[in-house]
């Protein structure tokens, strides 16, 4: 299954089943994309890393 990258319009394949909030990298522009809707899958630019993110 594919969608278009919201940044570069490149084709992005996502795994099945996709998960909400899953992070996928655009193979063309390397943007991090987030699965924001399922059925059908819709991708948006993932949030930038914040200072308090981590393990």
């Amino acid at each position: 299954m594919t969608d278009r990258c919201p940044e570069c319009e490149g084709a992005v394949q996502f795994p099945q089943p996709a998960r909400l909030s899953e992070i996928i990298e655009c193979p063309d522009c390397r943007s991090e994309l987030e699965v924001v809707e399922l059925d059908p899958v819709r991708l948006a630019l993932a949030p930038e890393v914040e200072e308090d993110w981590g393990e």
Partner: peptide, 10 residues
């Protein structure tokens, strides 16, 4: 509870 589903959460 997760806002970012990475390898581990999957």
């Amino acid at each position: 509870v997760a806002s970012r589903v990475r390898f581990e959460e999957k």
